[in-house]
Nucleic acid binder design. Structure first.
Ligand SMILES: [Mn+2]
Ligand SMILES: [Mn+2]
Ligand SMILES: [Zn+2]
Ligand SMILES: [Zn+2]
Lengths: 147, 147
DNA sequence: CTACTAAATGAAAATCGTTTTCAGTTAGCA
DNA sequence: TGCTAACTGAAAACGATTTTCATTTAGTAG
Protein backbone atom coordinates (compact mmCIF):
# COMPACT_ATOMS: atom_id res chain seq x y z
CA UNK A 1 0.00 0.00 0.00
CA UNK A 2 1.48 3.30 -1.09
CA UNK A 3 0.42 6.44 0.68
CA UNK A 4 -1.01 9.20 -1.45
CA UNK A 5 -1.07 12.73 -0.17
CA UNK A 6 -4.84 12.53 0.03
CA UNK A 7 -4.66 9.48 2.23
CA UNK A 8 -2.19 11.14 4.52
CA UNK A 9 -4.37 14.22 4.77
CA UNK A 10 -7.33 12.07 5.68
CA UNK A 11 -5.29 10.26 8.25
CA UNK A 12 -4.31 13.56 9.82
CA UNK A 13 -7.82 14.93 9.73
CA UNK A 14 -9.14 11.76 11.29
CA UNK A 15 -6.92 12.39 14.31
CA UNK A 16 -8.02 15.96 14.66
CA UNK A 17 -4.97 17.53 13.07
CA UNK A 18 -5.56 20.46 10.78
CA UNK A 19 -4.40 20.56 7.20
CA UNK A 20 -2.26 23.64 6.77
CA UNK A 21 -0.28 24.75 3.72
CA UNK A 22 2.90 24.10 5.68
CA UNK A 23 1.93 20.54 6.43
CA UNK A 24 0.94 19.97 2.85
CA UNK A 25 4.34 21.11 1.61
CA UNK A 26 6.17 19.00 4.12
CA UNK A 27 4.24 15.86 3.26
CA UNK A 28 4.71 16.59 -0.41
CA UNK A 29 8.44 17.13 -0.05
CA UNK A 30 9.01 13.98 1.93
CA UNK A 31 6.85 11.96 -0.46
CA UNK A 32 8.62 13.19 -3.56
CA UNK A 33 12.07 12.35 -2.27
CA UNK A 34 13.64 9.01 -2.93
CA UNK A 35 16.37 9.76 -0.41
CA UNK A 36 16.38 10.00 3.33
CA UNK A 37 16.13 13.60 4.40
CA UNK A 38 17.10 15.34 7.59
CA UNK A 39 14.76 17.95 9.01
CA UNK A 40 17.27 20.57 7.89
CA UNK A 41 17.30 19.22 4.36
CA UNK A 42 13.54 19.26 4.19
CA UNK A 43 13.62 22.81 5.48
CA UNK A 44 16.08 23.90 2.82
CA UNK A 45 14.09 22.33 0.01
CA UNK A 46 10.86 23.91 1.15
CA UNK A 47 12.31 27.33 1.81
CA UNK A 48 12.85 27.95 -1.87
CA UNK A 49 9.17 27.70 -2.71
CA UNK A 50 7.85 28.75 0.63
CA UNK A 51 10.23 31.11 2.42
CA UNK A 52 9.14 32.09 5.86
CA UNK A 53 8.34 28.57 6.91
CA UNK A 54 9.88 27.77 10.26
CA UNK A 55 12.21 24.89 10.92
CA UNK A 56 10.15 24.29 14.07
CA UNK A 57 7.15 23.52 11.95
CA UNK A 58 9.14 20.89 10.10
CA UNK A 59 10.07 19.26 13.37
CA UNK A 60 6.55 19.38 14.67
CA UNK A 61 5.03 17.94 11.53
CA UNK A 62 7.61 15.19 11.22
CA UNK A 63 6.94 14.22 14.81
CA UNK A 64 3.26 13.84 14.09
CA UNK A 65 3.84 11.89 10.89
CA UNK A 66 6.29 9.57 12.60
CA UNK A 67 3.90 9.12 15.48
CA UNK A 68 1.21 7.99 13.06
CA UNK A 69 3.67 5.70 11.35
CA UNK A 70 3.38 7.55 8.07
CA UNK A 71 7.10 8.16 7.80
CA UNK A 72 9.93 6.45 9.59
CA UNK A 73 13.01 7.62 11.32
CA UNK A 74 16.51 6.40 10.71
CA UNK A 75 19.35 6.66 13.17
CA UNK A 76 22.63 6.48 11.35
CA UNK A 77 25.18 4.82 13.56
CA UNK A 78 28.22 7.02 13.81
CA UNK A 79 27.21 10.60 14.09
CA UNK A 80 23.87 10.01 15.67
CA UNK A 81 21.95 12.30 13.38
CA UNK A 82 18.46 11.09 12.72
CA UNK A 83 17.31 11.01 9.17
CA UNK A 84 13.80 10.86 7.98
CA UNK A 85 12.49 8.97 5.06
CA UNK A 86 9.27 8.27 3.38
CA UNK A 87 7.97 4.91 4.32
CA UNK A 88 8.03 2.31 1.62
CA UNK A 89 5.08 0.00 1.70
CA UNK A 90 6.89 -2.64 3.69
CA UNK A 91 8.99 -2.97 6.73
CA UNK A 92 12.59 -2.34 5.76
CA UNK A 93 16.14 -1.72 6.85
CA UNK A 94 19.32 -0.03 5.70
CA UNK A 95 22.71 -0.80 4.37
CA UNK A 96 24.87 2.27 4.78
CA UNK A 97 28.24 3.15 3.29
CA UNK A 98 30.37 4.51 6.09
CA UNK A 99 32.42 6.59 3.66
CA UNK A 100 29.93 8.36 1.42
CA UNK A 101 26.69 7.82 3.32
CA UNK A 102 24.87 6.06 0.50
CA UNK A 103 21.84 4.21 1.87
CA UNK A 104 20.40 1.07 0.35
CA UNK A 105 17.07 -0.28 1.54
CA UNK A 106 16.34 -3.93 1.95
CA UNK A 107 13.24 -5.66 3.16
CA UNK A 108 14.18 -9.19 4.10
CA UNK A 109 15.32 -9.41 7.68
CA UNK A 110 13.63 -12.50 8.97
CA UNK A 111 14.08 -11.79 12.66
CA UNK A 112 10.79 -13.31 13.77
CA UNK A 113 12.31 -16.45 15.20
CA UNK A 114 14.95 -14.54 17.16
CA UNK A 115 12.32 -12.11 18.37
CA UNK A 116 10.14 -14.91 19.69
CA UNK A 117 13.07 -16.52 21.43
CA UNK A 118 14.16 -13.27 23.07
CA UNK A 119 10.67 -12.37 24.08
CA UNK A 120 10.21 -15.69 25.78
CA UNK A 121 13.54 -15.55 27.57
CA UNK A 122 13.21 -11.99 28.83
CA UNK A 123 9.45 -11.48 29.23
CA UNK A 124 9.71 -8.38 27.09
CA UNK A 125 6.91 -7.45 24.77
CA UNK A 126 8.93 -6.64 21.69
CA UNK A 127 7.49 -3.87 19.57
CA UNK A 128 10.08 -3.35 16.92
CA UNK A 129 13.65 -3.63 15.87
CA UNK A 130 16.39 -1.63 14.28
CA UNK A 131 18.72 -3.35 11.87
CA UNK A 132 21.48 -1.66 9.94
CA UNK A 133 24.44 -3.00 8.07
CA UNK A 134 27.43 -0.76 7.70
CA UNK A 135 30.11 -1.17 5.10
CA UNK A 136 31.80 0.30 2.09
CA UNK A 137 30.11 0.65 -1.25
CA UNK A 138 31.93 -0.37 -4.39
CA UNK A 139 32.87 3.15 -5.41
CA UNK A 140 34.36 3.99 -2.05
CA UNK A 141 36.22 0.72 -1.94
CA UNK A 142 37.79 1.43 -5.29
CA UNK A 143 38.71 4.90 -4.17
CA UNK A 144 40.42 3.44 -1.10
CA UNK A 145 42.38 0.98 -3.25
CA UNK A 146 43.51 3.69 -5.59
CA UNK A 147 44.50 6.20 -2.90
CA UNK B 1 39.23 -12.54 25.21
CA UNK B 2 38.64 -10.19 28.09
CA UNK B 3 40.53 -6.94 28.18
CA UNK B 4 42.56 -6.24 31.26
CA UNK B 5 43.53 -2.71 32.08
CA UNK B 6 47.15 -3.58 31.39
CA UNK B 7 46.27 -4.80 27.93
CA UNK B 8 44.36 -1.66 27.20
CA UNK B 9 47.24 0.47 28.38
CA UNK B 10 49.58 -1.42 26.15
CA UNK B 11 47.24 -1.03 23.24
CA UNK B 12 47.16 2.73 23.83
CA UNK B 13 50.91 2.99 24.24
CA UNK B 14 51.44 1.00 21.08
CA UNK B 15 49.53 3.66 19.14
CA UNK B 16 51.50 6.49 20.66
CA UNK B 17 48.90 7.59 23.16
CA UNK B 18 50.12 8.56 26.59
CA UNK B 19 48.92 6.92 29.76
CA UNK B 20 47.61 9.63 32.03
CA UNK B 21 45.91 9.28 35.40
CA UNK B 22 42.72 10.55 33.78
CA UNK B 23 42.78 7.89 31.11
CA UNK B 24 43.50 5.23 33.69
CA UNK B 25 40.47 6.24 35.73
CA UNK B 26 38.22 6.35 32.71
CA UNK B 27 39.27 2.92 31.51
CA UNK B 28 38.88 1.59 35.02
CA UNK B 29 35.43 3.07 35.43
CA UNK B 30 34.16 1.73 32.16
CA UNK B 31 35.65 -1.68 32.80
CA UNK B 32 34.14 -1.99 36.27
CA UNK B 33 30.64 -1.18 35.12
CA UNK B 34 28.24 -3.87 34.03
CA UNK B 35 25.88 -1.24 32.65
CA UNK B 36 26.06 1.03 29.68
CA UNK B 37 27.25 4.45 30.70
CA UNK B 38 26.85 7.82 29.09
CA UNK B 39 29.81 10.16 29.04
CA UNK B 40 28.02 12.21 31.67
CA UNK B 41 27.54 9.19 33.90
CA UNK B 42 31.17 8.28 33.64
CA UNK B 43 32.03 11.86 34.47
CA UNK B 44 29.86 11.82 37.57
CA UNK B 45 31.30 8.59 38.83
CA UNK B 46 34.85 9.74 38.36
CA UNK B 47 34.33 13.16 39.83
CA UNK B 48 33.88 11.76 43.32
CA UNK B 49 37.37 10.27 43.44
CA UNK B 50 38.99 12.64 41.05
CA UNK B 51 37.36 16.06 41.11
CA UNK B 52 38.76 18.47 38.65
CA UNK B 53 38.64 16.04 35.77
CA UNK B 54 37.04 17.62 32.74
CA UNK B 55 34.09 16.20 30.87
CA UNK B 56 36.02 16.98 27.70
CA UNK B 57 38.65 14.51 28.73
CA UNK B 58 36.01 11.83 29.08
CA UNK B 59 34.83 12.52 25.57
CA UNK B 60 38.29 12.54 24.13
CA UNK B 61 39.29 9.31 25.81
CA UNK B 62 36.09 7.52 24.88
CA UNK B 63 36.59 8.53 21.30
CA UNK B 64 40.04 6.99 21.25
CA UNK B 65 38.89 3.80 22.96
CA UNK B 66 35.98 3.42 20.57
CA UNK B 67 38.27 4.09 17.64
CA UNK B 68 40.50 1.26 18.74
CA UNK B 69 37.49 -0.97 19.24
CA UNK B 70 38.16 -1.35 22.94
CA UNK B 71 34.71 -0.17 23.92
CA UNK B 72 31.59 0.07 21.83
CA UNK B 73 28.97 2.68 21.37
CA UNK B 74 25.26 2.20 21.60
CA UNK B 75 22.73 4.39 19.92
CA UNK B 76 19.41 4.13 21.68
CA UNK B 77 16.69 4.56 19.13
CA UNK B 78 14.36 7.32 20.19
CA UNK B 79 16.30 10.19 21.63
CA UNK B 80 19.48 9.50 19.80
CA UNK B 81 21.71 9.64 22.84
CA UNK B 82 24.79 7.48 22.49
CA UNK B 83 25.72 5.28 25.37
CA UNK B 84 29.02 3.66 25.93
CA UNK B 85 29.69 0.25 27.27
CA UNK B 86 32.54 -1.99 28.00
CA UNK B 87 32.97 -4.57 25.33
CA UNK B 88 31.97 -8.07 26.36
CA UNK B 89 34.08 -10.80 24.92
CA UNK B 90 31.69 -11.52 22.10
CA UNK B 91 29.77 -9.74 19.46
CA UNK B 92 26.43 -8.75 20.96
CA UNK B 93 23.28 -6.70 20.61
CA UNK B 94 20.64 -5.02 22.71
CA UNK B 95 17.07 -5.39 23.76
CA UNK B 96 15.91 -2.07 25.17
CA UNK B 97 12.84 -1.17 27.19
CA UNK B 98 11.39 1.96 25.66
CA UNK B 99 9.84 2.98 28.98
CA UNK B 100 12.55 2.58 31.59
CA UNK B 101 15.65 2.17 29.43
CA UNK B 102 16.68 -1.21 30.77
CA UNK B 103 19.13 -2.85 28.40
CA UNK B 104 19.53 -6.58 27.97
CA UNK B 105 22.42 -7.97 25.98
CA UNK B 106 22.11 -10.94 23.70
CA UNK B 107 24.66 -12.59 21.52
CA UNK B 108 22.84 -14.75 19.01
CA UNK B 109 21.93 -12.78 15.93
CA UNK B 110 22.76 -15.10 13.10
CA UNK B 111 22.83 -12.52 10.34
CA UNK B 112 25.63 -14.11 8.37
CA UNK B 113 23.43 -15.50 5.65
CA UNK B 114 21.60 -12.22 5.15
CA UNK B 115 24.91 -10.36 5.17
CA UNK B 116 26.31 -12.57 2.44
CA UNK B 117 23.20 -12.16 0.33
CA UNK B 118 23.21 -8.38 0.69
CA UNK B 119 26.89 -8.12 0.04
CA UNK B 120 26.54 -10.08 -3.17
CA UNK B 121 23.54 -8.11 -4.38
CA UNK B 122 24.98 -4.67 -3.66
CA UNK B 123 28.74 -5.12 -4.02
CA UNK B 124 29.19 -3.63 -0.57
CA UNK B 125 31.94 -4.85 1.67
CA UNK B 126 29.97 -5.18 4.88
CA UNK B 127 31.94 -4.42 8.01
CA UNK B 128 29.37 -4.63 10.73
CA UNK B 129 25.80 -4.37 11.76
CA UNK B 130 23.62 -2.78 14.35
CA UNK B 131 20.70 -4.74 15.71
CA UNK B 132 18.41 -3.56 18.45
CA UNK B 133 15.07 -4.79 19.61
CA UNK B 134 12.81 -2.31 21.33
CA UNK B 135 9.93 -3.22 23.58
CA UNK B 136 8.53 -3.10 27.05
CA UNK B 137 10.00 -5.02 29.95
CA UNK B 138 7.73 -6.94 32.27
CA UNK B 139 7.75 -4.33 35.03
CA UNK B 140 6.81 -1.52 32.71
CA UNK B 141 4.11 -3.59 31.10
CA UNK B 142 2.58 -4.31 34.49
CA UNK B 143 2.77 -0.64 35.38
CA UNK B 144 0.96 0.21 32.15
CA UNK B 145 -1.77 -2.34 32.88
CA UNK B 146 -2.26 -1.04 36.40
CA UNK B 147 -2.28 2.67 35.48
C1' DC C 1 68.22 12.98 37.10
C1' DT C 2 67.15 16.94 33.86
C1' DA C 3 65.52 19.08 29.95
C1' DC C 4 62.72 18.92 26.05
C1' DT C 5 58.63 18.36 23.20
C1' DA C 6 54.62 16.45 21.52
C1' DA C 7 50.59 15.18 23.52
C1' DA C 8 47.10 15.87 26.85
C1' DT C 9 44.36 18.58 29.98
C1' DG C 10 40.53 21.71 31.60
C1' DA C 11 37.97 26.17 31.42
C1' DA C 12 35.38 28.61 28.54
C1' DA C 13 33.18 29.53 24.42
C1' DA C 14 31.21 27.79 20.26
C1' DT C 15 28.33 24.71 17.75
C1' DC C 16 24.65 21.77 16.52
C1' DG C 17 20.32 19.70 16.61
C1' DT C 18 16.23 19.95 18.98
C1' DT C 19 12.63 21.75 22.22
C1' DT C 20 10.11 25.25 24.73
C1' DT C 21 7.80 29.55 25.15
C1' DC C 22 4.78 32.85 23.71
C1' DA C 23 2.14 36.12 21.16
C1' DG C 24 -0.11 36.33 16.94
C1' DT C 25 -2.61 33.66 13.02
C1' DT C 26 -5.65 30.32 10.91
C1' DA C 27 -8.39 25.94 9.78
C1' DG C 28 -12.46 23.96 10.51
C1' DC C 29 -16.77 24.09 12.29
C1' DA C 30 -21.27 26.02 14.38
C1' DT D 1 -19.65 35.07 9.82
C1' DG D 2 -17.64 34.37 14.07
C1' DC D 3 -15.53 31.39 17.43
C1' DT D 4 -11.92 28.65 19.31
C1' DA D 5 -8.71 25.11 19.58
C1' DA D 6 -5.00 24.14 16.89
C1' DC D 7 -1.16 25.92 14.49
C1' DT D 8 2.62 28.98 13.32
C1' DG D 9 7.21 31.34 13.55
C1' DA D 10 10.65 34.16 16.15
C1' DA D 11 13.35 33.91 19.79
C1' DA D 12 15.19 31.90 23.64
C1' DA D 13 16.39 27.78 26.06
C1' DC D 14 18.36 23.43 26.03
C1' DG D 15 21.59 19.44 26.32
C1' DA D 16 25.09 17.05 24.19
C1' DT D 17 29.22 17.47 21.92
C1' DT D 18 33.22 20.01 19.86
C1' DT D 19 36.55 23.64 19.42
C1' DT D 20 39.86 26.89 21.10
C1' DC D 21 43.61 28.05 23.72
C1' DA D 22 46.70 28.66 27.47
C1' DT D 23 48.79 25.57 30.79
C1' DT D 24 50.52 21.15 32.33
C1' DT D 25 52.52 16.61 31.85
C1' DA D 26 54.16 11.84 30.03
C1' DG D 27 57.62 9.88 27.83
C1' DT D 28 61.99 10.13 26.13
C1' DA D 29 66.63 11.63 24.89
C1' DG D 30 70.66 13.58 26.75
MN1 LIG E 1 15.09 3.37 3.79
MN1 LIG F 1 25.55 -4.42 25.67
ZN1 LIG G 1 30.32 4.82 -0.44
ZN1 LIG H 1 11.03 -1.13 31.40
Amino acid sequence: MVYTEKKIENELRKRGYKITPQRRTIVNTVMRSREHLTPAEIYERIRQEHPGIGLVTIYRTLEILAGLGLICEMHAGGNCRSYLMRRPSEHHHHLICSDCGTVIDFTDCDLGELERRLSKKTSFKINGHLLEFVGQCRKCREKTMAG
